Simulated scan of single mutants.
Amino acid sequence: MNGLRIAVFASGQGTNFQALVDAVRDQKLDVIIELLVCDKPSAPVVERAQRAGVDTFIFKPKDYPSREAYESEIAAELERRGVGLIVLAGYMRILTPVLVEPYYGRMINVHPSLLPAFPGVNGIGQAFEYGVKLTGVTVHYVDGGLDSGPIIAQRAVEVADEDTESSLAERIHETEQALLPWVVQQIANGRVRLDGRRVTIDFS
């Protein structure tokens, strides 16, 4: 174990969180999943974390006077635990500079489209309704904008004529669950370099 401690932020089902947990269990991902951060106490991802033995930081945003207030608590917890990488995996809240600034270059997000196309909510539905023949998955650094940070890796998914939005979504999610652990492993291995908006992965 190389000691890179990660925190996963999620708000819903937690399938990408589970993919990371499974990759660690199967020795395909050499990190420590230190913490799950979740803004919805009843979200299924919380139960996934409990089953996996991963600590949780669960909060209700309405209990705080501002986003900055709860992010300050989260930041303190991340620092206390020595978290070196934040992975946003279906976290449905806009982040403020309280987290973005200290973790820039150490915070990534997975998005279900080939950015910069179809950012924001429901990237799969946006792409399907637009009628594209090719969509996919992007893992990118978080810069405080709407899915606008430097792109680390992308994988394409073809849209078949017979696809429904549901069948397309299933393949997109499968691709997410493969790409995200792979990117985290490259970061853990020190292979990922960020230079302005350009990201390179060194396999030498």
Rank of each mutant, 00 (worst) to 15 (best):
156 A>P: 07
152 I>C: 11
155 R>F: 03
166 S>M: 13
172 I>S: 11
157 V>Q: 05
171 R>Y: 07
155 R>E: 15
157 V>H: 05
187 I>L: 04
182 W>N: 04
170 E>A: 10
182 W>S: 14
179 L>R: 05
175 T>D: 08
154 Q>H: 06
173 H>I: 11
167 S>I: 00
173 H>N: 12
151 I>Q: 15
164 T>W: 04
186 Q>W: 03
159 V>T: 05
156 A>L: 08
171 R>T: 04
151 I>H: 15
184 V>M: 03
184 V>L: 04
176 E>F: 06
172 I>W: 05
183 V>P: 10
161 D>F: 00
154 Q>K: 08
182 W>D: 13
185 Q>D: 08
167 S>P: 01
169 A>W: 00
177 Q>H: 15
153 A>L: 14
184 V>F: 03
171 R>D: 06
185 Q>E: 12
174 E>D: 14
174 E>M: 09
181 P>K: 10
183 V>D: 13
176 E>I: 03
163 D>P: 02
186 Q>M: 09
163 D>S: 02
168 L>Y: 05
156 A>G: 08
184 V>H: 06
188 A>Y: 03
167 S>D: 03
186 Q>R: 11
167 S>W: 01
179 L>N: 06
170 E>C: 00
160 A>E: 15
163 D>I: 01
172 I>N: 11
161 D>N: 08
179 L>H: 07
181 P>C: 12
176 E>Q: 08
151 I>A: 15
159 V>P: 03
163 D>K: 00
164 T>V: 09
174 E>V: 01
173 H>C: 09
177 Q>E: 13
163 D>H: 02
176 E>H: 04
167 S>E: 02
151 I>E: 14
171 R>M: 01
151 I>P: 13
181 P>D: 14
175 T>W: 07
181 P>A: 14
169 A>H: 09
159 V>R: 01
153 A>K: 08
187 I>G: 02
151 I>M: 13
174 E>P: 01
158 E>T: 07
165 E>L: 04
175 T>A: 10
154 Q>V: 06
186 Q>N: 05
186 Q>P: 00
170 E>W: 00
165 E>F: 00
168 L>Q: 04
168 L>G: 09
152 I>K: 09
171 R>S: 08
156 A>V: 12
153 A>C: 10
153 A>W: 10
168 L>M: 05
152 I>A: 13
152 I>Y: 12
187 I>N: 01
166 S>N: 14
161 D>H: 10
172 I>G: 11
176 E>T: 09
176 E>K: 02
168 L>K: 03
162 E>N: 12
168 L>D: 09
166 S>F: 09
164 T>L: 05
155 R>S: 13
160 A>Q: 11
166 S>D: 15
175 T>M: 11
164 T>K: 02
151 I>K: 14
158 E>W: 05
173 H>F: 13
178 A>T: 14
161 D>L: 00
176 E>N: 07
182 W>G: 08
177 Q>M: 12
160 A>C: 12
160 A>T: 11
154 Q>W: 06
178 A>G: 11
186 Q>Y: 03
180 L>Y: 15
180 L>E: 12
186 Q>L: 00
166 S>H: 14
